[in-house]
Nucleic acid binder design. Structure first.
Lengths: 198, 198
DNA sequence: TATTGTTATACTCTATAACTATA
DNA sequence: TATAGTTATAGAGTATAACAATA
C-alpha cells in the first residue's frame, strides 16, 4: 500500500492534541479544578506534530520541485553552495552539508555525469578536488530556486503577507538558536566571489 | 566519522541564504537596479533551511527524551493514541499513524514485550486485535509527555512568551492547511472515553 | 604518519509479497 | 472472495573499513 517515508519521526498524526483534549475534558467533566492551561486552547500545544507535518509537506514539495536534479535536494545544495561560495573541496563540502564523504562521492558522480559540476584538481593539494559548477549548473540552479520559491509559497498558503513574514522571522530565530547550539557546519567563512545574474 | 542521519533532506547548511546574499551583493555592487526584495533581509527567505534545522533539532530532542521507549517516537505515538482515544485496532492504528502495517507489527511486539500495551482479541471480529495500554503504559506516557514538554521549551528557547505562542499559532495554521491538502489520517472520529490523571 | 578521495561491504529501516486465519 | 495480521525478503539509503595517492 505504500505509506510515506520514515522521516526521523514525530511526524504523522497528532496523538497529543487529541490526547490532551481528552484529558482536559476528563478533568473538567470530573469536576476537577482548572488545570494549568486556563483556556481551551490545547491545540496550539502540539509543537512536534505541527513541525512534522509542515516539514514533511515542505520536503515533499521541495523534492517534487527538484526531482530532475541528480541527488535531489542534496544535489541542489551542492550546486547552490558552490555557486554562492565558489569552488569548494570535496571534503569541506561534505562537512558543510552534513553528508558523509562516501555519499558525497556518489552524489558528485551523478552531478558530474549530468554536467552540472566539475571536479578540478586543486593546485594547492594534488590529493584534493575542487568542485566547480558548470555554466549549465548555474542555469539549472536558477530554475531550481524559482521552483523552490513557488513551493515555499504553497506551503505558507494559509497565511497572509504579514503573518507570513512574521512566521518566517520567528522560525528563523528559532533556527539560528538551534543551529548555534548544535551547529551542523563549522566552516563559516563567508568569503565569496560574487556570482552573476539569476 | 558518523554524520547525522538522512532526514528527508532540505536540512543541513543554508546554501541559499549565503547564495542569495552573495547574489544580492553582486547585483547591487554591479550597480544593478534594486531587485524585488527591497530591504536587506534575505535571511528570512530561506524557509527550507530554517524548517529543516528546527525540525531536526526538535526530532533530536524528542528522540533523546523518548530513547528508552521501545520504538522511540512511534512507540510514544501508539501509546498516546490508545490512551487518548481508547482501544484501537492494529490496522486502524497503522493508518492513523502513517506506519506500514508490517512495521506496526514489530512496533507492537516491542511495546508488548515492554508491557506498555496489550493485544486483545476484538470481540466483534476474531481476525482483529485491539491495542490497549497497560497501567504501566499510561504511567510511562505521563513521564514521556513531561519530557517532551521540556524538549519543546528547549527548542523555542530563543522566543519570549508572547512570541512563542504567536509562533505556535502560525505554525499550527500552516500545519492544518498542509494536513488538509495531504491528509495523513482519514479516520478523524473524535470518539473518546476519557482518561484519568496525568 | 596523516589526509583526500574511492570502493566494497555491512547495517538500518522501509516496503513488497506470500501466507494463515477469519469473514 | 476479501480482510486482519504475520513473516520473510527485497530494496533504498547510510555508515564503516580498507585501499591508493599524496602530503
Amino acid at each position: 500500500m505504500a505509506y510515506t517515508t520514515y522521516d526521523g519521526d514525530m511526524t504523522s498524526t497528532p496523538p497529543d492534541v487529541k490526547g490532551r483534549i481528552a484529558r482536559e475534558v476528563a478533568r473538567r467533566g470530573a469536576g476537577g479544578v482548572e488545570p494549568q492551561v486556563a483556556s481551551g486552547a490545547p491545540v496550539e500545544s502540539d509543537l512536534g506534530w505541527a513541525l512534522g507535518v509542515v516539514f514533511r509537506r515542505y520536503a515533499k514539495a521541495a523534492a517534487a520541485a527538484l526531482e530532475d536534479v541528480p541527488g535531489g535536494p542534496r544535489g541542489y545544495q551542492v550546486l547552490a553552495t558552490t555557486v554562492a561560495e565558489g569552488p569548494r573541496r570535496q571534503l569541506d563540502l561534505a562537512a558543510q552539508l552534513a553528508v558523509d564523504r562516501t555519499v558525497m562521492t556518489y552524489l558528485l558522480d551523478d552531478l558530474e555525469k549530468a554536467d552540472l559540476v566539475q571536479r578540478q584538481a586543486d593546485p594547492a593539494d594534488r590529493r584534493a578536488r575542487l568542485i566547480v559548477p558548470t555554466d549549465q549548473g548555474k542555469e539549472v540552479l536558477c530554475e531550481m530556486e524559482r521552483r523552490l520559491s513557488t513551493a515555499e509559497d504553497e506551503v505558507l498558503g494559509s497565511l497572509d503577507q504579514a503573518e507570513r513574514s512574521s512566521f518566517r522571522l520567528l522560525l528563523q530565530r528559532v533556527a539560528m538558536k538551534a543551529n548555534a547550539i548544535d551547529p551542523v557546519h563549522n566552516a563559516c567563512d563567508l568569503a565569496d566571489d560574487a556570482v552573476d545574474d539569476c
